[in-house]
């Protein structure tokens, strides 16, 4: 399990970095799918198989397919790719890079103050669904309202 975790973590990292530096939209999408799938593997390694399934089905499946459809509709050609390359100037990365490095340093400095190991005991579908349809029922309803609103908004926005 521990091997699975670290391997998947490295894959996720590399794939994510590839997403943000790639110039081709479709390539970037595929890297993103890889990243999401490896995160799904990490979930599995952490003992959350239900979350891993949802990550694979909803994120890597549904959402990314949606992205892909839009990319095909837009049909961005070689011109866009050249443009992307022109925008990739090192000096643009200096400011954001510094800020973000600072943020990361802060986060890790907080995290390394404790040292607790995780023993991956599986948290099953049953536990989650008991919570979902028990105390979190209202949140589920709200989430469904959010999805409905997203549906209506997307339909309206994408209309000609």
């Amino acid at each position: 399990m521990i091997f699975l975790f670290y391997t998947a973590a490295i894959v996720a990292l590399i794939a994510t970095i590839a997403v943000i530096v790639s110039t081709n939209v479709v390539h970037a999408l595929v890297y993103l799918i890889i990243s999401l799938l490896s995160v799904a593997v990490i979930f599995f390694a952490l003992g959350a198989p239900f979350a891993a399934m949802l990550e694979a089905i909803v994120y890597a499946g549904a959402i990314m397919v949606l992205f892909l459809f839009v990319m095909m509709m837009l049909n961005l050609g070689q011109a866009t790719q050249d443009e992307e390359k022109a925008w990739m100037q090192p000096r643009l990365w200096i400011g954001p890079g510094t800020l973000v490095a600072l943020l990361l340093a802060q986060l890790t400095s907080v995290l390394f103050t404790q040292d607790v190991a995780i023993s991956p005991v599986e948290v099953g579908v049953l536990d989650i669904s008991v919570l979902l349809f028990g105390p979190w029922l209202l949140a589920v309803e709200l989430a469904s309202m959010l999805l409905l609103a997203g549906l209506v908004a997307a339909y309206h926005l994408a209309k000609k």
Binding site: A12, T108, D115, P120
Partner: peptide, 13 residues
Amino acid sequence: ESIPYEHGLILAA
């Protein structure tokens, strides 16, 4: 084997 808790969080970060 156990995975260090903060490693998961650092990956997320």
